[in-house]
Amino acid sequence: MNLSSISAALTTLDLRSCLISRDNRLVLEHYRTPNTATELAKINSCTKSVLSALICIAMDKGLLPQPDAPLTLFYPQLSLDPDHRKTEIKLEHLLTMSAGFNWTEFGGQNSFPRMTRSPDWVRFVLEQPMSDTPGARMVYNSGVSQLLSAILRQAAGMSTAKFAEHYLFGPLGIKAYEWEVDPQGVHTGGFGLKLRPSDLLKLGQLYLQEGMWENTKLISPERVNRSTETALHVEAPYRGGYGWHWWTDVYTSAAQESSAASQAYFYARGYGGQFVYIMPELSTVVVLTEDQRRKKKPPVDVFREIIAPALLAP
Rank of each mutant, 00 (worst) to 15 (best):
G170E: 02
L73R: 10
K295L: 15
P183F: 09
Y242C: 07
R239H: 12
L91W: 03
L152V: 03
V286S: 05
E127T: 12
C56R: 12
K42G: 13
V224Q: 03
S259P: 00
E235I: 03
K162H: 15
D120H: 10
P34E: 11
T116Y: 12
N2L: 08
V286A: 06
T289D: 02
E88D: 10
F101S: 04
R239S: 11
I6H: 03
C56A: 15
Y75L: 00
I43P: 01
L193F: 05
Y238I: 11
A176T: 15
S45T: 08
T47Y: 02
Q146E: 14
A150W: 02
K202R: 13
S253L: 07
R269S: 14
Q274N: 06
L232D: 01
G190R: 04
A313Q: 06
R223W: 15
T284R: 00
K202V: 09
R239D: 08
L63Q: 14
H93K: 08
L28D: 01
M279W: 14
V285Y: 06
Q77T: 14
G108F: 09
D301A: 13
L78E: 06
R294Q: 12
R16C: 10
A313P: 05
P65N: 12
G204P: 05
H84T: 14
G62Q: 13
D199P: 10
D83P: 00
T38P: 07
R153N: 13
R123D: 15
T252E: 11
P197D: 05
L172D: 01
V181L: 09
P280V: 02
L312N: 05
I219T: 10
A9Y: 08
A37Y: 08
P113I: 07
E210T: 02
S52V: 03
L94N: 07
T36L: 07
W246F: 06
S258D: 12
L206Y: 03
T12Y: 11
S258E: 08
I151E: 02
S283V: 00
L168F: 03
V144A: 04
P34F: 13
K175R: 14
L10S: 01
A264L: 10
L200Q: 08
F124V: 12
T47H: 03
L152T: 02
L28C: 01
I6F: 06
P134T: 04
L218S: 03
D23F: 13
P171D: 04
R153S: 15
T289S: 05
D120E: 10
T248H: 08
A156R: 05
P309E: 10
T228A: 06
Y75A: 01
T96L: 02
S262N: 11
T38F: 11
H30R: 12
A69L: 04
S131Y: 10
R22F: 11
P197M: 07
E281A: 14
D132W: 07
P237H: 14
L203I: 13
G100H: 01
F124R: 11
E39P: 08
Y267Q: 09
N102D: 15
Y177S: 07
V122A: 11
A69I: 05
A58C: 10
A268T: 04
P299M: 03
P171S: 04
L54T: 00
R196C: 12
E305N: 10
G62V: 14
T38N: 15
E281C: 13
S5N: 00
V181M: 13
V287E: 02
L201Y: 00
H30S: 13
S198A: 15
D291M: 02
R16Y: 09
N215F: 09
G62F: 09
L95Y: 03
I306K: 01
W213K: 08
R25L: 10
D81P: 05
